[in-house]
Design a protein around this nucleic acid. Structure first.
Lengths: 233, 233
DNA sequence: ATATATTTGTGTTTTAGAACATAGTTCTAT
DNA sequence: ATAGAACTATGTTCTAAAACACAAATATAT
């Protein structure tokens, strides 16, 4: 069970886009209804086929949104970093979740009832546009992803995922190590390949001096080359 | 150049969802700004990298939304049937188009300036929710599509496309012929395979008495089996 | 601390589907 | 009506990536 935190959170700084658009009355309602939950590493946040109830905002940690495909093979659809919103699409579509979400590492998530969000945005054009824009951006990314995952070869797909991880979570103090430690299996599921192929292609990149790998730590040595591999597929 | 039609269109019946949600003043504005254009078969409606300006509603005909991928290989992202809206995602995301649209067959399209739509929905929660819901449904479909196109085999992907075409455009009077005539190349681009493979797999389905094919006419003989192939991949 | 499970790494085999080649057929334009 | 282009069909070859098999290295739990 996820732990319920009772500490006081300053929503004006953690949910700035939404907070800014609300009236005082609405802000009070938000404060009263928002809950903050903690999840342990690998804990499930929501499951496929569940009924969506909350808008979620990741305060701390890393989350993967994934889908189980043909023959149980799972596929990471997107990854969430702090202060990104998630979990609202299915509610708006009036559908159960078609994806699941779980914590890559210990997480803190703010949950806000979707009913509340919907009443807010029905009266607030700016808030409505905020969600419309997020959905539109995500839909564009999904369309792009269809082409990338189906047309690029394994090297291109892995290179792309590594760059994506770097842009999402940034680098450590050394200016080279990607700031997320994934299992090879997750790297594979993000790049639509088998685990063996992720391992093999990663070793190839190391031999070609594009990366340096130490367990789950991945250092980008030659980003230019990595980007080129991603581009040409 | 697409032809500009001067005939009077009854927007209350062609754009019922939007019309219903507007005030009289807004309806007049809509009438004054909506244009109806005709496109010939294979004519381009919009192009990748263009700046999106209009919400489009297909009144007549069939439209494909596609993306050119790695090495010029093009991929159909979705297909539009009458009274579906399209062309608005990129505007909302504040991006140029990342897809192109062209007419499978002669089309009539209603164009409404996006600025107008945005001002409407900023004041109208129901209209905002209408777009939020459309985007949310489409995003769910795109997520599902990523898994289907990457994990299913050619037979599964083609079977799925055929069922999708049937559900989108329906059957002819004989209750079996899919009501759209696509080139094998388009069938391939919809199912993420090469044209040769689309042709070959289609012939296999004919040999297995799942389909009957006469040129571009495709008859579904054994829908149950087709659905099973689509399901198991 | 030690047993058990999970993850990583590598070599080998198999296969689905792309690429290529060629020919027949059906549109389309003048 | 006829030439050229585009589409459809089928056989053959080739290759990327999956599937499988087995160690070795780590992590996790008792």
């Amino acid at each position: 069970m996820p732990g319920k935190s009772k500490e006081v959170i300053d929503l004006s700084s953690t949910l700035p886009e939404i907070w800014r658009m609300l009236s005082d009355v609405e802000r009070n309602l938000l404060r009263e209804n928002a809950r903050v939950l903690n999840f342990k590493k690998n804990e499930l946040i929501y499951l496929e086929d569940e009924i969506p109830k909350d808008l979620m905002c990741l305060f701390k940690g890393k989350v993967k949104i994934y889908k189980s495909g043909v023959g149980g093979r799972s596929q990471i659809i997107r990854i969430i970093r702090p202060y990104m919103y998630f979990g609202y699409r299915a509610y708006f579509a009036r559908e159960p979740y078609v994806t699941a979400a779980s914590a890559f590492e210990a997480c803190t998530v703010c949950m806000i009832p979707m009913e509340l969000i919907e009443t807010f945005l029905r009266k607030n054009g700016d808030l409505a546009m905020f969600f419309i824009q997020m959905l539109s951006v995500d839909l564009g990314i999904a369309d792009q992803r269809v082409v990338n995952l189906t047309q690029k070869h394994v090297r291109g797909r892995l290179a792309e995922s590594l760059i994506f991880l770097k842009e999402s979570y940034g680098l450590e103090e050394d200016g080279a190590t990607i700031n997320i430690y994934l299992a090879r299996e997750d790297l594979a599921s993000l790049s639509n390949m088998t685990t063996s192929n992720a391992i093999r292609t990663l070793s190839n990149f190391v031999n070609e001096r594009i990366l340096a790998v130490d367990g789950r730590k991945i250092k980008i040595i030659d980003e230019e080359r990595l980007r080129k591999i991603s581009r040409i597929g």
